[in-house]
Write a protein that binds this DNA or RNA. Structure first.
Lengths: 341, 341
DNA sequence: CTGAAAGCGCTTACAG
DNA sequence: CTGAAAGCGCTTACAG
């Protein structure tokens, strides 16, 4: 295999020292223009590129960010990753993407990998099966800063980027009520995620505000997956007193519900209205198209990256940590439009 | 920031040399059991982990694979990435994921990044907008091996993993014919991708075999995207002589077509049958569910990773390169079942 | 069985 | 303006 060109080789060919070459390459003011020109020209010819590994060893910096998400196949996360990349690349950083597959063990391994690979920082949306978050604290103690987005951890003090899940859920539920639904069920996410709890609370409060009863049997918890959405829809529609609307805590859950309802012979929204959360691009393509609560996923990624770079590039720990709360947006489509149907 | 523990620190605390610590850590036979025990014990206590950057500098190996795909949000690619990760992690390698976003410039940057970051090898599915593939050849010349999967380059000599696109398309077209369609259109992918050309050829040959005419106006090219699928569907259905079936070169295209057809008031499959290619999990959820040609995407990723590791870990260039051709599988759902409808 | 030295590719005080 | 030396964290011939 052809060895890469090094500074040593350039120095040899030019009959100068490595130090001089190094300085010329970084355009140091203490090198004569003539020498600089010769070095630069030869470097170009030889297609020299500095070995980043040597630089990392020197600076203890890798210019690499890690990002851990539950699943890259989930468009919410892949879009957020796009936002992270957008900021990172423009600032000279590279992004290493990890998936936890919703597993605590895998998340642990990913975090350890980030520690040993000496990433400069980590952006993370936690796995639904992680009950302990010590591994994040340990990473911080090793001097690697963390920023959370979407699924955040209360146990870790740092910057966070979320949307107003409570308000998104409140608005969605209120919309269902205004469209005429009275028996509104909720398929919630795993309760150890704050997004699940906040969305549940928004649902509860909207019911209360409009004088509708909160009924335990109309609230079921689910993983954020299509397949479990289908199971929970079966469960809800099997109730003696069926709901006339379902608000699902995510579009993936809602997609499973959508499929189940069609298969069971219900008409949406006439028999039952349906809403999701996240507004994945696929949701508009379903028949009937799915109403949802849009989240600015790309922007969430961007902001998380900006906050992380701040932490990395400032020498000192900031006086206080910031939680940015972005706005959600109600997207009404046919699956919830009872009024005109 | 707390400095990481180094071999030097362990040596200092134990009053031995760095060499001894290094050897003890790697369980060298020339170190006394007693010394080993002391070193290992202290290393454990201090939570020592070797600095991989120092090792990389030494070995000129990073134990990192790069993978470039057009879009991680495309489930075909995210599943293939899963397959790559599966093999890579079990063999002690890490995976850096890059997206070309179908752009030649971005693909170029990604390849350069892989070169400068000194990844040990690259797995790639090329961007649809890349007409030149010199950047891959240059990477190889730098001693970084490459394996292609799905979208391969004829211009580069190396291992490749594909499916039998020709046969998959042939089978799909033949199925449409057997279900009674006679005016079968094809929305092909970008012609500079071999997968597009092979699928087109399979379509052509199936028509010919069954004595059906090939008509230019029934074949249109499209990016592998939903939105262009919709546009091309408009174009096809606007023809004076409408097709009675559409075979789309991918499920993403087919999803755009599906949406267009419903919106235009056609019934599937009665008015028009539809088939895609890839069998994304979402395809089963559409109404009517989409028929497709399944590809073993996870396995493609696994095999690509295995071939790449072979190239990396063998000293010499192999005598010849291998192209593995995996089987496709026809998945019949309602969108193409004219006979029983 | 253990240590001193050289080296991976680079940078940067320190001299001159 | 340029060079020799030390050092980032590690490994490994070479001595003893």
């Amino acid at each position: 295999m052809p060895a890469s060109v090094t500074i040593k080789e350039i120095a040899r060919q030019l009959g100068v020292s490595k130090s001089t070459v190094s300085r010329a390459l970084r355009d140091s003011s203490e090198i004569s223009q003539e020498t600089k020109d010769r070095v630069l020209e030869l470097a170009r010819q030889l297609n020299y590129s500095p070995n980043p590994i040597a630089l990392s060893l020197l600076n203890n910096r890798t210019h690499t960010l890690g990002i851990i998400v539950p699943e890259i196949a989930n468009p919410f996360f892949s879009t957020a990753i796009g936002g992270v990349e957008d900021i990172a690349y423009s600032r000279g950083y590279h992004v290493m993407i990890y998936q936890s597959h919703e597993s605590y063990e895998r998340e642990l391994i990913d975090v350890q990998h980030i520690a040993t690979r000496r990433a400069d920082g980590l952006i993370v949306s936690v796995s639904s099966q992680s009950e302990k978050h010590d591994h994040f604290v340990e990473l911080q103690e090793k001097g690697i800063p963390i920023v959370f987005f979407d699924r955040v951890s209360d146990a870790v003090q740092t910057h966070k980027v979320i949307v107003d899940d409570y308000k998104g859920a409140y608005d969605a539920t209120e919309h269902l009520i205004k469209e005429g639904s009275r028996r509104i069920a909720h398929i919630a996410g795993p309760p150890n995620l704050s997004i699940s709890r906040n969305r549940l609370q928004g649902y509860r409060d909207a019911l209360q505000k409009h004088g509708l009863p909160f009924r335990d049997e109309w609230v079921v918890a689910s993983e954020y997956s299509q397949s479990e959405g289908t199971e929970r829809a079966y469960q809800l529609m099997a109730l003696r007193e069926r709901p006339d609307a379902i608000f699902a805590a995510s579009d993936r859950i809602a997609m499973g519900v959508h499929w189940a309802l069609r298969q069971l012979g219900y008409r949406m929204p006439e028999d039952i209205a349906l809403m999701g959360f996240s507004d994945l691009s696929i949701s508009a393509l379903l028949d009937p198209p799915l109403s949802s609560v849009a989240q600015p996923s790309f922007e969430m990624g961007q902001q998380a990256a900006e906050l992380l770079l701040e932490l990395i590039e400032s020498k000192s720990t900031p006086a206080s940590f910031e939680t940015r709360v972005l706005k959600t947006n109600l997207v009404i489509r046919r699956s919830s439009m009872k009024n005109i149907s």
